[in-house]
């Protein structure tokens, strides 16, 4: 299904950007991985259109820490843009495999990673085992967010 990206993000805000790159300079994700820098994201949305951006897998490296937004001299809600782009990408099926697995796990086990080894470690440190997750409740929440529109679980 197609969703209008600009229903989720005010497109006019992009025109505020004058490419000073303070955002990219502040980005912790870029320090450690090949991410799509916020400046580049905005410029590509403006010049190439978001259709091209949502194809880019680097979009998913951002950890939405909001530092770029805090430091943006033009107060562009960059994190909102990233979230909107990812929504759009997900609805087109552009979700990285690892993330897809994590979501499926979340739906099945209530946790986004496999934790049975963790319990051994916890026992080793004298910690109580993890509490069981009310899976039905989690699935309910996930359904309410309409995540099942995008990924089957």
């Amino acid at each position: 299904m197609t969703v209008k990206l600009w229903n989720f993000f005010p497109r006019e805000a992009l025109y505020e950007c004058y490419q000073c790159a303070r955002c990219t300079g502040s980005c912790p994700a870029l320090e450690v991985a090949e991410a799509l820098g916020p400046r580049e994201t905005i410029l590509k949305c403006l010049n190439l259109g978001h259709d091209e951006v949502v194809e880019d897998e680097r979009l998913w490296v951002c950890c939405t820490c909001n530092v770029c937004e805090d430091r943006c001299p033009q107060k562009i809600p960059i994190s909102d843009l990233l979230v909107a782009l990812r929504n759009s990408a997900a609805r087109r099926g552009n979700i990285p495999d690892k993330l897809q697995i994590a979501i499926e796990l979340l739906a099945k086990t209530g946790r986004s990673m496999i934790v049975h080894q963790l319990d051994e470690m916890r026992a080793h440190h004298g910690l109580a085992p993890l509490m069981p997750v009310p899976i039905d409740e989690v699935r309910e929440v996930l359904k309410k967010t309409k995540l099942d529109d995008v990924i089957e679980f």
Binding site: C20, A21, R22, C23, T24, G25, S26, C27, V67, C68, R71
Partner: peptide, 10 residues
């Protein structure tokens, strides 16, 4: 003088 386009973020 070296001119670099891009203001440091930090």
């Amino acid at each position: 003088v070296t001119f670099i386009r891009g203001i440091p973020g930090e």
